[in-house]
Design a protein around this nucleic acid. Structure first.
Lengths: 344, 344
DNA sequence: TTTATATGTTAAAGTGGTTTAGCGCAAAAC
DNA sequence: GTTTTGCGCTAAACCACTTTAACATATAAA
């Protein structure tokens, strides 16, 4: 017993395939109420489900949105154990699904073959998370698809952008640390790239220090990569700079690593060193002490991204650059500055 | 300029479409070496990429494998912020991709509509993570697809299974706690279901206690749900049973919550209470103290699942039940039992 | 009344692959 | 020496939808 097709529905309800198609897709030149009723009845009776492959072939549109995330360093595996991406993706997927679209995941790392796959399937649009080597953006442009970049500052009219005001957010975070009386504040961060968010966060950090007339010591800036391991390693370096009493990490994952590294060195947090994160990933409340951090509302941001994309795909007017909100979350990893013995 | 099709390749290399198709798909009745060369050349020159929709329509196979994971409780969002699923998925995806397949993610929760989507797209097989209401399995069977269940004990010839030896793993974990001298050992767990892994882990736990002639106190079993929040809540209940000196959690996520809850109550870990986890998700080394746990090699398990599936799809012989290995990882959350003041 | 416009519907022609059936021709088997 | 087998290749039909063009009929406008 083969699968029910649109043809079966047409025969069962005594109309042409085209009328059925019109009803299913809710097209302008609507069928009469009676016809619609008949057809819907038949669809229900015969348990008809449209075949997406046929639909996609005929219309060269797929109701699929490609979502690009990074691969792990050398494994070529989706960087899903980074909760930032995981949470963002579940946000994107849910909103996409609500709008009748489907998410197609693709990783990008040493190779871009995953993008080929995406193009084989005729995706309708692209949402790209994070930042990649230059070349990728050219490749993206050749695909001639509506493309939304999340958290990047690539300048090109082809792309739409979604991000927070990274400069302002870092400024606010640093100010919070300053307000707690800290004067020697480190920045622990991933790689600083011209077209990335971190450069803006660095600017916000510097701006806050300057406004408070604090020295901007380049030795207080620890640049590595976005990950737990780097945070752990940074702990040692940070301790070596023994005046530092607080650290602002540009990602919670780094902050979590920093916490672990500091613990290993026998430091108490926040008594010895205050740690501030960024993102508010789920892990930030699982570490000890729970992280004070900048909430990005990651899932919500993902949903906004998806909705922007579906608007684009339905030719609605969409701003080229959209900003989402940020909010400080106060937990237990930051405390007021207290003079330490060796500072006396 | 329209996309290059197989027809273009056929014309360019002076053969029929069918010959091109045969070469591309590497089919039995091979073309002559010369023809193959000509065709491959044309493919490269014209930058031809097969259209998957067309291929899928014509062959009613899609090179796609549906992967089913749970939705969040009431949000209908993919449960990706549970690192267990996130890690498993990146394993599945990478192995699938290496075999030329593509992963299609679908969530299941209050509704199963996501499964419809999957069937619209003609997926070739199904990998199902975790455990669901009875009804889902009937639905799964009606899809008449090769189906691999990960971590479930549903009895039905239709399904293939992949899991660890949950009983033995829990036995080993509990024995480790016993070997450290603990006598009053709690089990903190998600819901115990007839067809789930937890029932087997409970059995292993009980078996270890029995073998060591320890009392099996039902008050030492804390049944809730698999999640950080439940772990936190369980901490209070566990403390109320003041003889308990160690807890075996059936998931790292629960263990992480337990840690947080115990901290909040001023407990020291492992000095006051030892905590053992299960899974070895990435978070287990981020919490404080780092979790001693049972490693499931989640990513590897995902890869094994994917390889089983592709074997199934290529009609290779496959065992109906496959077991993966488990290994204890000793970190800092378990210590030897020490007599406490109030136990004197 | 005639003409224009909109509505509801349809038949036929794609969309880009694969499946099926079969055709020459050469080598192997009888 | 004839028949069988297998190889390399092809033409045509088909997969389940959408696009296009067009045709009645009803209603509104001139």
């Amino acid at each position: 017993m083969a699968r029910t097709t649109i043809k079966d529905i047409a025969e069962a309800s005594g109309v042409s395939q085209m009328t059925v198609s019109n009803v299913i897709n809710d097209r302008k030149s609507k069928a009469s109420a009676a016809t619609i009723e008949k057809i819907n009845q038949a669809i229900k009776n015969l348990n008809y489900r449209p075949n997406m492959s046929a639909r996609s072939l005929a219309s060269s549109a797929s109701k699929m949105v490609g979502v690009v995330i990074p691969f792990t360093e050398n494994q070529n595996q989706l960087l899903l154990d980074n909760p930032f991406y995981a949470e963002m993706i579940s946000g994107i997927e849910s909103a996409l699904r609500e709008q009748g679209y489907y998410m197609m995941l693709a990783g990008v790392g040493e190779s871009n073959v995953a993008l080929d796959v995406i193009s084989h399937w005729n995706v309708d649009g692209l949402i790209v998370l994070g930042i990649y080597p230059e070349g990728l953006y050219d490749l993206l442009k050749t695909m001639k698809l509506p493309t939304l970049l999340i958290d990047s500052y690539i300048e090109d009219d082809h792309f739409y952008h979604l991000r927070v005001d990274d400069d302002a957010a870092a400024f606010e975070a640093t100010n919070y640390l300053i307000a707690q009386g800290h004067k020697n504040i480190a920045l622990v961060t991933g790689a600083i790239r011209e077209d990335g968010v971190i450069k803006r966060r660095l600017a916000g950090y510097n701006r806050a220090l300057k406004q408070a007339n604090l020295v901007q010591n380049p030795d207080y800036i620890f640049e590595g990569s976005v990950g737990f391991a780097w945070g752990q390693k940074a702990a040692d370096k940070l301790i070596a700079q023994n005046k530092i009493t607080a650290a602002f990490c540009t990602a919670d994952l780094i902050a979590a690593g920093l916490l672990a590294g500091l613990h290993k060195n026998g430091k108490q947090i926040p008594q010895d060193i205050s740690v501030m994160g960024f993102d508010n990933i789920s892990i930030s409340q699982m570490v000890y002490p729970a992280l004070t951090t900048m909430d990005q509302e990651i899932v919500g941001k993902g949903r906004i991204a998806a909705n922007l994309m579906t608007s684009l795909l339905t030719k609605k007017q969409v701003e080229r650059e959209v900003e989402t909100k940020v909010k400080i979350i106060i937990r237990d990893s930051v405390s007021k500055f207290k003079m330490r013995r060796d500072d006396v």
